[in-house]
Write a protein that binds this DNA or RNA. Structure first.
Lengths: 239, 239
DNA sequence: TAGTGGTCTAGACCACTGA
DNA sequence: CAGTGGTCTAGACCACTAA
């Protein structure tokens, strides 16, 4: 219908199907071939639609498996951007990751809410520091619920110094997607000391929530960024 | 060579060509057909490579013209994300834009540097407020160099209340790309009064630089966001 | 092993831009 | 108008995943 490209019509069809509840978060969408048959278009067209939805974070495509539906979000007034998990995982070999401390903890209300369905309010919180050429760039509090695999996570921690989400991966917890909300804070003394800035300095803090393929929150990180050793930049592109 | 997909090899070829100076910012790259002939691959493969570079903000593709090279950036340690110009232009009809004041100004050092080649250090600065359902969400200082088209910009301002970058567009200044750096600040009394928060509150400030197709900075905005009426969110996706 | 998504080709026609 | 990128097709083979 109309002058809209076929792949855009298909994208909208799929989004509508998701939003009217035909597929829930974590469900598998029909296969590419199925869409070809159902709408009478070529596979390249179906792929373009699904790749766009993937780029917009609405679905996750897994080679050999299929296309999963992601959680929908209903933001208020906000600017939302897209980024790559890897950019935040800091796999740059020049960055060093160090875990400062770890302890059991009963989650504060706001953190507990993020985990939603988590069976237990009890978990662990770790304090870590990421540096680059011995200059601190980020201090993070990492909240992990107490799951079956806690032992694997601890074992992975013991063998290597890697950012927490890498550790989660090596413990078999695959992260499909995340979301980070950025806000300004006046830094607390403990974090300030780690970053080497005066307590009370205004800093950027990102609250990251990582989700697995089923849309369950599996980790929450409160990342506090150094004011000058680190830059938060966003490229603005035409649509 | 190796098991790398053809389109990735081509992407790297193009990036290498750019970084060794074969094409400068603002130049046109070879056409799709030219790449097909030169590398002996199909047009779909060439297109995939160029579309990826476009999604990464390294080139801008213009229907009927060709593919332009964008400015390269050499960030220090940073997290870089991608977003859409339109998300920042706030074309949401529920948002209202109001220009509070405008005056001639001699640019401060840091702003002047951003304009780089601007012939004149003299320009204008406007103070504006964007609200949503009569709640303030952003106050912005907009710096514009004094160009030939200043008259057109002012004429556009007089006829409609639109965000500055929309105004620039309607004055014939096409914006190809932008960049925003986010940092925390303690808000000054004037901005605080506009947003309705106490002076000294820690807030997010984005310094946006808008570039035309030739890579020249044509506008700088210092955007200060309301702490609760606005959210800065980033989706984290697998690569 | 069967079925999925990932890559790739060789063609076609259309829509936009500038001269 | 000629030339560009935008959309689309109908095939092919490969790489990955789960059972």
């Amino acid at each position: 219908m109309s002058g809209m490209p076929l792949y855009l019509s298909l994208q909208n069809e799929i989004l509508n199907a998701i939003s009217r509840g035909a597929y829930a978060a974590g469900d598998l969408l029909p296969t590419e071939q199925e869409y070809c048959d159902r709408y009478g278009v070529s596979r390249a067209t179906v792929r373009k639609a699904l790749e766009n939805l993937s780029a917009d974070g609405r679905v996750v495509r897994k080679h050999g498996i299929g296309t999963y539906v992601q959680m929908t979000e209903v933001p208020g007034q906000s600017v939302k951007f897209r980024g790559h998990l890897e950019d935040v995982l800091l796999h740059d070999p020049e960055n060093s990751f160090r875990r400062i401390s770890r302890q059991a903890c009963r989650f504060p209300d706001d953190i507990y809410k993020l985990f939603g369905e988590a069976v237990d309010r009890q978990g662990s919180v770790s304090l870590s520091l990421i540096s680059r050429r011995s200059k601190p760039i980020m201090a993070g509090l990492i909240y992990l619920p107490a799951p079956q695999c806690e032992h694997d996570v601890e074992a992975a921690y013991a063998t290597t110094e890697q950012p927490t989400v890498m550790i989660l991966r090596s413990a078999g917890i695959k992260i499909a997607r995340g979301h980070q909300r950025i806000r300004p804070i006046l830094v607390e003394p403990e974090i300030a000391a780690l970053l080497g800035v005066p307590a009370g300095t205004p800093l950027l803090r990102g609250r990251r929530v990582y989700f697995d393929i089923k849309g369950r929150a599996v980790a929450v990180v409160e990342a506090t960024y150094h004011p000058t050793n680190y830059e938060m930049g966003i490229d603005l592109l035409p649509r």
